[in-house]
Amino acid sequence: MARPTNRYRVRVGDAPAFRRTITALVLATTALVLLAPLSIIFAEAFRRGLGPYLEALARPDTLHAMGLTVFAALVCVPVNVAFGIAAAWTVTKFTFPGRSLLLALVELPFSISPIIAGVAYLFVYGAQGLLGPFLAEHDIKIMFAVPAIILASLFVTAPFVVRELVPLMMAQGRDQEEAAVSLGASGFQTLRLVTLPNVKLALLYGAALCNARVMGEFGAVSVVSGNIRGQTSTLPLQIELLYQDSQVLAAFAAATVLAGVALFTLVAKFLIERAQAARAAASLEDA
């Protein structure tokens, strides 16, 4: 929580001249490095007006890419929410040797460049990969097709939900779950009726982050997708294809959709943090 800045008489950097200078510098830099890139997406997409924008957006290949991106999100978000709950339940409700190692493993995908993730998947499911001969024999196509896009997206977004849940569930401890169990609740009842309601907002935010990343993933997906237009292009890949073709308006139109998802995620974050702060304040008053 931020302390009221005027409670203490002397604080470093409170001299008005210094405060104004540094605030102005930070705001100016932010306008250049954060606001300008965000604004230019919409400025370019709408530079010829709404009609051409919608036309550029409604290209069949862009619509197809959008569909594939939504499909990937519809598969990946529930899977990683389920994984997130299982992993967070494991590391916060139980004590066992190797717990820190497990948590480190869960976070591993964050430290790995998406390109490496893509290459690694190629060496599992590609023709030269570990399972390549087996897959070819049984005529199963994973690489350069939709399953590979899903798998690579799952890898990249695996930590998002866990990361939001673990600190919160750790802070909440296990007393409530232990009480529920000793009153006769089953494990699943405890999870559904005690644990999940307590972490609802964090779970929601984790899912929103996971969704934004699945929809926006570029590096890993570009290695494993094969990038066949109208077949295995997700929206970010479609943006690159359009840009390479000098279809700048169409590229920016497609980019507004993803920028919209990003802005929606940030608004969700803002609202969830406010709700959490209100909850914390309420429980402080109760106590």
Binding site: P37, I41, V248, A255, L258, V261, A262, L266
Partner: peptide, 21 residues
């Protein structure tokens, strides 16, 4: 809130925007 934009905005979109800028 703006600080989190680079995490939420897909990198391809960021690349497109920066290249045009």
């Amino acid at each position: 809130a703006l600080v989190d934009v680079p995490f939420a905005l897909p990198t391809a979109v960021a690349g497109l925007a920066l290249t045009t800028l």
